[in-house]
Amino acid sequence: MISANQLTKQFTTKERGSTFSWRGKTRKITAVDKVSFEAEDGKITGLLGPNGAGKTTTLRMLSTLLTPDSGKATIDGADLATQKVAIRQKLGVLGDAKGIYWRLSPRENLLYFAKLQGMNRADAERRATQLIDELGLGALADRPTQGFSQGERMKVAIARALIHDPQTVLLDEPTNGLDIMSTRSMRELIRGLRAQGKCVLFSSHIMQEVSALCDRVVIIAKGRVVFDGTPPEVLAQSGASTLEDGFVRLIGSDEGLFA
């Protein structure tokens, strides 16, 4: 269970006048502006928004990588500001950066993270084997991941996020760059997590994806929450006939993803 309350994050960017100017102008950009929402256990919550809306920044704050400038959040009652380690143990994160160690095999990649999560050797190996089987990585399990396809690497990354069997799972654009078959198996996996009673929060910029999976949709545009409800409510509130039209109207721009 995630509860975010008025989360805000600003970044300072530098603009250089020319190649040779030493000090550029600094500008503050509010990436996330008072974002509040809840994601419940046994439900899939979708964080929907165009590119640059603040989805990744929100997920990074929830995964303790960035410290919010203001606002609060709790995960299963643990406070983001004061109980970082507890939160890191509760969370499984497939973040924006999904790199894996290419000189290590999938199994070694998984065992490394298992040990960092404090699992003992026997448990770690059992869980790694289980995830390798579930994700169909059996034939590749002990080969270095260099040369793996995008889909295969994504499978290793998601297995790594789930290695310690976390109650809450954050997924940042988990289907990005995947083909149809891999996308479908990723959706199956996310539904499987819901069936186990996990709390799943995932971000996407694709409306269809969200509508196919989510029990609840939080739409973010320019750092602000512009909608929070079920997919049918998207249609009702926007007065549009399709989800995509509803999404575009709600984010307040006809340019949609290119805004």
């Binding site: 990588l65 890191r88 969370l91 973040g95 950066a97 999904k98 790199g99 894996i100 993270f113 996020a161």
Partner: peptide, 13 residues
């Protein structure tokens, strides 16, 4: 560069 630092920092390490 390999984008493995961010996942690493989401663990208790």
């Amino acid at each position: 560069e390999r984008q493995t630092l961010e996942p690493l920092l989401t663990t208790p390490v």
